[in-house]
Design a protein around this nucleic acid. Sequence first.
DNA 1: TAGTGGTCTAGACCACCTC
DNA 2: AGGTGGTCTAGACCACTAC
Lengths: 255, 255
Amino acid sequence: MNKQPKYRQVADALRREIDNGAYPPGARLPSESELSARFAASRNTVRSGLNLLVTEGLISSSQGLGYEVRSHEVFKLNASRFENLSFPQNGDAYSTDVTNAGRRPHQTFRVEMLPAPEEIAAWLKVEAGAKAVLRFCHRYVDDVPWSTQATYYPGWLVEQAPRLAEPGDIAEGTTRYLADHGISQIGYFDEIATRMPTPEEARLLEIGAGVPVLLWTRTGYSDEKPIRCTITTFRGDLNRMNYEIGDLAGRNEDL
Amino acid sequence: MNKQPKYRQVADALRREIDNGAYPPGARLPSESELSARFAASRNTVRSGLNLLVTEGLISSSQGLGYEVRSHEVFKLNASRFENLSFPQNGDAYSTDVTNAGRRPHQTFRVEMLPAPEEIAAWLKVEAGAKAVLRFCHRYVDDVPWSTQATYYPGWLVEQAPRLAEPGDIAEGTTRYLADHGISQIGYFDEIATRMPTPEEARLLEIGAGVPVLLWTRTGYSDEKPIRCTITTFRGDLNRMNYEIGDLAGRNEDL
DNA sequence: TAGTGGTCTAGACCACCTC
DNA sequence: AGGTGGTCTAGACCACTAC
């Protein structure tokens, strides 16, 4: 018999009860001292067990309130349809999507000139440290922090499309603005990764322990070379990404 | 001044030193008692700080050995080229990919008949609990657990392609086998999500705290309806996914 | 055997929330 | 005021690894 440490027994028992529905999403767990009595363990041991469930993303805690079972509501982003030039959108694709879902979008925005970080330079196929423009969005849905989006444009492109470097929104959307200047994106290369948030990301997205981030890096190509690289950082618990490949012809409307 | 708790100061100081390269990937951190002296904190406080870094995926620990800075080596899977029927592969696409990368693939395999779980049934557009076949792979690369892959086929399909339900590999590959029986996949619908692993997943993939999983759900469509649903569970620290959209014509060879 | 991390306890004090 | 979780300590014993 493989005896588990007591704090794991606590975590396993509570996890089972959560899975069973004994504590449905949004419900409060018994207090630490109650659990301490129930499991005949010290408060610290119970805390270790609860902490396990927190880092698994199952529950969250707040001072003075207690532990609560997390509820998940996910937003699905169809990355293969997003910003499709064949179906041009007016303005920002994100706002459109969120509004269509009956939610209220909100975002803060800033523009920076900076030397391209190494990773970005590799995507844009320019030298590390070369001039680049960063357009940065911090996005909320119904006032919940949802994602951050950093788009980098290579310096050479800015000479052809100077408004990229100007602060403030581009009303018709940057994709449309570039297309109007003869620079159209004919393809994308996407990379999707996941990891735990850095403290900075945890702060911006207001996520605690147990919630990973989903990183979406999209590099847009013109006929000849990369013209932009967009890194979107999502809260992993609230977002999923979809891609359609081949001829699906709307067989997936309800998904 | 916003005073941080001591265990956070410990975590922040060590994180900074790791980021600086003072402790490069693979390096060992000082022992808990050394850190305890350095930070004038009790061993438990130091442990809280170290535990933060563990749940961030930055370091890992093992009994008797100490704490070690994690190193990351990622495998990129091109999901938009994977299993492309225009470029038919002999046998298993996964083994081919891994071998091409100069690594040694290894997998265990099993087949089950079972009632379709609710989520799967939704993808396959059959009733929950309807008969389904599960073909399950547990995959390793150089003996490191890499991913699990569960493919579900609807019961009605098995009547046309009975070998799906037989245990043991299908030498020519299931996609090819189905195509030879007049059932060809004309499109896919992919969904990508991330979360912390369940204890079961953590066991199969041998991941500790601080490493999320990447969930890739691919539903394959024939001309008329879904014919399979594949859920691949990756270690998030070792895998990234790529998609090409539009006409890239090999502009990305080196990525 | 010595040193490492892993588990567990008992108790103290603090910060936050609700009433 | 009373209950909740958050932080911290000091010390005990165990399990694993190295030599």
